[in-house]
Design a protein around this nucleic acid. Structure first.
Length: 614
RNA sequence: GCCCUCAUAGCUCAGUCGGUAGAGCACGUUCUUGGUAAGAACGGGGUCAUGGGUUCAAGUCCCAUUGAGGGCUCCA
C-alpha cells in the first residue's frame, strides 16, 4: 500500500545468504563447508542427547557461517551446559565415526524415531509430498533417508562429511542459545535453539570471530552514544528516537541534499498532518488490512482520529483536491512524512526498527503510457541518491504477483514487464522474487551492500492498483474522458532513521567529509594560540566548513586523541609556528600527517573533498 | 507477543556466604601552557530500574512490572 522499507527485516546480519541469493546458495549447499556444518549439527545433537537422554530433537540445518539445532529440553540451557556439550562434541569428533546413509521406508522411519515426536511429524510431511527448508513443495516421491554416526541417527537428506574426524575440534564454537518456535509457528511449542559456528580450520574460525567483533564496533547503537548522535529514552518510550545535535546536523545535510535533488527532478513538496479521521482509513482500507500496526484511535469531540501509519491517503487527497488533466501528469508529490506504527516490543532494534519514523516518501501519478518512463526515472534517480551516499554495490529484487493479488492479470503483467524492462535497460543486476509482490501491485526493492558486505534494503518502488480505485482517482485524457491514473509509491532512503543507522554502520562512524557533523577540529597548543585559532574558525565557517576550536584546558595530545575518537576528518593544530606563518598544521583521522599548510590551501582542499562527497 | 539472559554513578564494569556502595573513564576546581592518540592533584556524583514479599537485616533471595540484549514470530 506504500513504501515499507523502514519496517523490513534487518537483513544482512546472519541469514542474508540463505534468504536472497539462490545461485550462491546452491553453490554453498554443494560445498564441503556446508556438509561440515550440517555434520557438526548432528554431532552437537548427539552430545545434547547424551546429556539429556529424554530430549526431543527437531531440526538442525547448516546456515550462513554455521549451524543450529532445535531441542525440546527439560530445563533451560546455561553457558556451562554449552561448555560441557562442546567438550562432549570433541570426544565424538575424535572417535572418527563415519556418517552412514540409509534409505528407509516411512514405516521403518517411524520405528526408528518412535520417541521423537517432531521427527514423526516430519516423516508424515515427507510421505505426503514434502517441502524443502524454504517451504516449497518437492517434486515427485520423496526418498526418506537417515544418517547415522556413532550412536546418533537423524532423519536427514544429507549430504555429510565422511566421518566426524573431518571436523576440526579447534575450529568450532557454540555461540548462543535462543528460543525458536517449532516450524516457526508462534502457536506451536517454543524450543531451545543452539547456534554454533564451524570452519575448516582454526584460522578461519578466528577470522570469523574477528568479523563479529568488527561488526560490534560498527554497531550504530554503540556509535550513536559514543559520537553523541541519537538516543532512546525509557521515560519517553521504546522505539522513539531522539536525534541529538550531531545526529540532527547529519540529518539536515541528508534532507537538504535530498530536497535539492528532488527539486531538480520534477518533484513538488507537500506537507500533511499526522492524524486523520477513521473514515479516511476506512476508505484507504488500512483499518481492515493494516489495523494491527496502527495505534488506538484518539477521540476528538466524539469522533475518532488515527495516527498515520502511512502517508499515501493524504497525498492522494492532494491529487484529488481538484480535477486533473493528463497535461499535469506525471505528478510527483514528495514529503518527508513521519509515521507511527505499532511494532511488537521484541522486534525493536536501535534505529533499524522503530515505532515512529520519517519516510522519504513520494507518490507518482501518471498515465498508463507514461509508466515505463516513470519507472526508468525513479530507478535511476534512486541509484543516483544511494550512490551519492557511498553505496556502490546495489542489487534489485523484482517482486511479482502474489496469490491474493487484486487487479487484472494483464495489468499486473504490464506493470511487471515495465519494471523488468526498466531494470534491463539500466543494466542493474536483479533477481525475481516470484509471488513476492504486495497484493496491490508488483515492486522493485533495492538493496545495498555495506563496507563489510552486509546487505540492507533501502529503496522500494511499488505499483498500486488498489488505492486509485478506492479513492476513485481520475484524470481527463486527450479524449475528454475520465481515466484512472497509475500510482507509484516510492521511498529511496526508506526511512531517515533506518538510513541513518545503515550509514553509521557502513562508515563505522567515520562519515565522509560532506556528512561529518564536525569537519575540522582546531587544536591550539597553548592559550596564546587561541586568538588565531578562533580567527581560523571564523574564516572556515565563512567558507561553509564546519569547524570548532578545542579550547579545553587539555594538552594537545588529549585533544588529538578525542578528535580521533570522534572521527573528525581534519585536525588543525596551531602552535607558535602556525600563528607566525598564518598556517595550520593538518592531521587527518587516517593518521596521515600532511603538516603545515596555508589556510587557503586547506580551505581549497576541504571544499574539494566536500564537493567530491569524500 | 514468545523463549532465554540482563538491569549498580553520564559510560564500562566490580561488589565473596544476605550485614548498610567501589574502580576506571566522563564531569567540576586548581596547578600545569604542553608539537601529533590520555599531564597531575583534589572534588562532586548512586532511593543499587520500579513495586511487592521473605528476613533481625536485601544491591545480593523470591514474585510482579518496566526497559534492554540475543533469537523466534511478525512486518499483506
Amino acid at each position: 500500500m506504500e513504501p515499507r522499507a523502514a519496517s523490513r527485516p534487518i537483513s544482512g546480519e546472519r541469514f542474508c545468504l540463505l534468504e536472497v541469493n539462490m545461485s550462491t546458495k546452491e553453490q554453498y549447499t554443494d560445498s564441503f563447508l556446508y556438509r561440515l556444518r550440517h555434520s557438526t549439527a548432528h554431532v552437537m545433537a548427539q552430545a545434547v542427547l547424551d546429556k539429556f537422554p529424554g530430549a526431543k530433537i527437531a531440526i538442525g540445518p547448516a546456515i550462513e557461517d554455521g549451524f543450529y539445532y532445535d531441542f525440546d529440553l527439560p530445563r533451560p540451557l546455561t553457558p556451562e551446559d554449552l561448555e560441557e556439550i562442546e567438550a562432549r562434541m570433541r570426544q565424538i569428533i575424535n572417535g572418527k565415526h563415519p556418517f552412514i546413509r540409509r534409505s528407509v521406508s516411512a514405516s521403518e522411519a517411524r520405528q526408528i524415531f518412535k520417541n521423537q515426536d517432531f521427527k514423526l511429524e516430519l516423516i508424515q510431511g515427507l510421505e505426503s509430498g514434502g517441502f524443502d527448508e524454504d517451504g516449497n513443495p518437492l517434486e515427485g516421491n520423496v526418498e526418506i533417508t537417515t544418517y547415522t554416526h556413532d550412536t546418533f541417527t537423524d532423519l536427514c537428506r544429507g549430504p555429510h562429511v565422511e566421518h566426524t574426524g573431518q571436523i576440526n575440534p579447534e575450529a568450532f564454537k557454540l555461540m548462543s542459545v535462543a528460543g525458536a518456535y517449532w516450524r516457526g509457528d508462534e502457536h506451536r511449542p517454543m524450543l531451545q535453539r543452539i547456534y554454533g559456528t564451524v570452519w575448516e580450520n582454526k584460522e578461519d574460525l578466528q577470522e570469523y570471530l574477528r568479523r563479529l567483533e568488527e561488526a560490534k564496533k560498527r554497531d550504530h547503537r554503540r556509535l550513536g552514544r559514543e559520537l553523541d548522535l541519537f538516543s532512546v529514552n525509557d521515560e519517553i518510550g521504546p522505539g522513539l528516537i531522539l536525534w541529538h545535535p550531531k545526529g540532527g546536523k547529519i540529518r539536515k545535510i541528508i534532507e537538504d541534499f535530498w530536497g535539492d535533488e528532488h527539486e531538480q527532478n520534477g518533484y513538488e513538496f507537500i506537507y500533511t498532518p499526522h492524524i486523520g479521521r477513521a473514515a479516511l482509513w476506512e476508505t484507504s482500507g488500512h483499518l481492515v488490512s493494516y489495523r494491527e500496526n496502527m495505534y488506538s484511535p484518539i477521540e476528538i469531540e466524539g469522533q475518532q482520529f488515527y495516527l498515520k501509519p502511512m502517508n499515501c491517503p493524504f497525498h492522494i487527497h492532494i491529487y484529488k483536491s481538484r480535477g486533473r488533466s493528463y497535461r499535469e501528469l506525471p505528478m510527483r508529490l514528495a514529503e518527508k512524512g513521519t509515521v507511527y506504527r505499532f511494532e511488537r516490543s521484541g522486534v525493536l532494534h536501535g534505529l533499524m526498527r522503530v515505532r515512529g519514523f520519517t519516510q522519504d516518501d513520494a507518490h507518482h501519478f501518471c498515465t498508463p503510457e507514461q509508466m515505463p518512463q516513470e519507472i526508468d526515472f525513479v530507478v535511476n534517480f534512486s541509484l543516483h541518491i544511494l550512490r551519492s551516499f557511498g553505496f556502490q554495490d546495489i542489487k534489485a529484487y523484482l517482486a511479482t504477483m502474489p496469490k491474493d493479488a487484486i487487479g487484472e492479470a494483464d495489468q499486473w503483467q504490464a506493470a511487471q514487464n515495465a519494471l523488468k524492462e526498466s531494470l534491463e535497460r539500466i543494466h542493474l543486476p536483479y533477481e525475481v522474487d516470484e509471488g513476492g509482490g504486495a497484493f496491490y501491485g508488483p515492486k522493485i526493492d533495492l538493496k545495498v551492500k555495506d563496507a563489510i558486505q552486509r546487505e540492507w534494503q533501502l529503496s522500494t518502488i511499488q505499483f498500486d492498483f488498489n488505492l486509485p480505485e478506492r479513492f476513485d482517482l481520475t484524470y481527463i485524457a486527450e479524449d475528454g474522458q475520465q481515466h484512472r491514473p497509475y500510482m507509484i509509491h516510492r521511498a529511496l532512503l526508506g526511512s531517515l532513521e533506518r538510513f541513518f543507522g545503515v550509514l553509521i554502520e557502513h562508515y563505522g562512524g567515520a562519515f565522509p567529509v560532506w556528512l561529518a557533523p564536525v569537519q575540522a577540529s582546531i587544536i591550539p597548543i597553548a592559550d596564546r594560540h587561541l586568538d588565531y585559532a578562533f580567527e581560523v574558525m571564523k574564516k572556515l565557517k565563512a567558507y561553509g566548513i564546519r569547524a570548532s576550536v578545542d579550547d579545553r584546558n587539555e594538552r594537545m595530545n588529549a585533544k588529538i586523541r578525542d578528535a580521533q575518537n570522534q572521527k573528525i576528518p581534519y585536525m588543525l593544530v596551531i602552535g607558535d609556528k602556525e600563528v607566525e606563518n598564518r598556517q595550520v598544521a593538518l592531521r587527518l583521522r587516517s593518521g596521515e600527517n600532511p603538516g603545515p599548510i596555508e589556510l587557503d590551501a586547506f580551505i581549497a582542499r576541504a571544499q574539494q573533498d566536500i564537493a567530491d562527497k569524500k
